[in-house]
């Protein structure tokens, strides 16, 4: 039985990757299990400069999921490369995906170039869901033209595979994915969280300090399946599928929709051992559905 997959030229022992923002810089999870069982790790979203993030509260519950408005709290790219990734490397030998965010093209380029030059980084995931400070706060990922612009600029300074992480808060995600492919992206990952909101009935005001937040968890899984399916129709580059994945069956479903690898997000926050258990259950689920080679099922539903 084979669980290995090839993601943009990087071999993963299995397709299961903890998603950025739900796994810190990984090493603290060694208190729960040996993280070397993971396919790869997408580490905490990193910006050029240190960020504190949004005001409290940053978390709200939802039916079958949660909203977060953490706001990209991180110590900045230099600290991540100098301290966090070496700390992770001490306990982990599988691939590391750096996750880069920015508020201008220049910031993306600077951070991606630094990540690309770092020996601990194997792949670069570029989160284009952030607002563009030079364009009235509109997210880079909501327009094909700005997605193309960021992809081209980042690809020009990177030798390592570049995966563009897409926001689902768009009318036509396939056209955005196509723009990334046209810009030279080696892959796309989707979906980021869905824009959402809760109101506290006691105060009658928005519950989150940031007013809105991103919805994740099993509530968004069918949206992820639909979008991965649509993007698979539109592009030839590999897709990392994510959005509410909580079981080995969910991994298989997203792969059938078109994913080459799968990220697990919210499930890590509910259960610190979620990824370990999903990986452990994969062979049993493969057997149940007569799958002998996971790498062969990508896009099988088409």
């Amino acid at each position: 039985m084979n669980t290995k997959v090839n993601l943009c030229g990087v071999e993963l022992q299995n397709p299961v990757i903890p998603a950025s923002g739900t796994f810190g810089f990984g090493y603290e999870f060694t208190q729960w299990y040996d993280i070397n069982c993971l396919g790869a790790i997408s580490v905490k979203g990193t910006t050029e400069k240190e960020r504190f993030g949004n005001i409290q509260p940053r978390i709200a519950e939802a039916p079958s999921g949660l909203l977060n408005a953490v706001g990209l709290q991180n110590p900045g790219i230099e600290a991540v490369l100098a301290h966090e990734l070496p700390e992770l490397r001490k306990v982990y030998s599988q691939p590391i995906i750096a996750n880069i965010s920015g508020f201008s093209k220049e910031e993306y380029v600077k951070s991606c170039a630094l990540a690309d030059a770092d020996e601990n980084v194997d792949l670069i995931e570029v989160n284009i869901s952030c607002p563009n400070v030079h364009a009235g706060g509109m997210s880079f990922g909501t327009e094909a033209s700005s997605a193309l612009e960021i992809t081209k600029a980042v690809k020009a300074v990177c030798k390592k595979p570049v995966i563009i992480k897409l926001t689902p808060n768009v009318t036509d995600i396939a056209s955005i994915a196509k723009a990334c492919e046209d810009g030279g992206a080696d892959g796309v990952s989707l979906i980021n969280t869905l824009l959402a909101m809760r109101i506290d009935l006691k105060t009658k005001k928005p519950l989150l300090g940031n007013v809105t937040g991103g919805l994740s968890g099993p509530a968004v899984f069918p949206v992820a399946v639909r979008m991965v399916y649509q993007v698979y129709n539109a592009v030839k580059i590999p897709i990392i599928g994510m959005g509410g994945v909580s079981s080995a069956e969910d991994v298989i479903e997203l792969m059938l929709a078109g994913a080459t690898a799968v990220q697990v997000g919210a499930a890590n926050l509910k259960d610190p051992c979620a990824c370990r258990d999903i990986i452990a259950n994969l062979p049993k689920a493969m057997e149940k559905y007569n799958i002998t080679d996971l790498s062969k099922i990508t896009g099988g539903a088409h």
């Binding site: 739900t22 940053r58 949660l66 953490v70 926050l269 509910k270 610190p272």
Partner: peptide
């Protein structure tokens, strides 16, 4: 006390200065 996501340090949901 703060609203928490995970409770074990992963999500940065409850950070304070």
């Amino acid at each position: 006390e703060e609203r928490m996501g995970c409770g074990f340090g992963a999500c940065m949901g409850c950070t304070c200065k």
